[in-house]
């Protein structure tokens, strides 16, 4: 069985890539995809820890549970986020967030 550390390394790499994407993508869709990557990394971490480190059998499923919940929440976030993207597109005919500076004072 593959030990814990390699999974953690992969997970860290995914988080870094996700953050990079979120910071650099011009399109709101790209940002959402990057966020999905970050959530995936977190879920992967949870499952890896759950399988390798546990104090009792009673909590043996905890990590997988949280991974499942994270997926559900990620799906919800994706749905709402994509709806917002559609709204933005309808209002300003673009999904490029650097064209949208309504938050500027």
């Amino acid at each position: 069985m593959i030990p814990l550390a390699p999974f953690l390394v992969v997970s860290a790499a995914l988080v870094a890539i996700g953050v990079f994407g979120a910071l650099t993508r011009r399109s709101a869709l790209g940002i959402l995809m990057s966020i999905e990557l970050i959530i995936n990394a977190a879920a992967l971490n949870l499952v890896a820890f759950s399988q390798h480190i546990r104090t009792s059998d009673a909590e043996s499923t905890a990590g997988q549970m949280f991974a499942l919940f994270a997926m559900a929440i990620a799906a919800a976030a994706a749905a709402v986020g994509l709806s917002i993207v559609i709204c933005i597109y309808r209002n300003s005919k673009t999904v490029n967030v650097d064209k949208i500076d309504l938050m500027r004072w």
């Binding site: 992969v10 995914l14 890539i17 990079f20 994407g21 650099t24 790209g30 995809m33 990057s34 990557l37």
Partner: peptide, 9 residues
């Protein structure tokens, strides 16, 4: 996984 993730961004 990592390669595709890099492609994604």
């Amino acid at each position: 996984t990592v390669g595709s993730a890099v492609l994604v961004v």
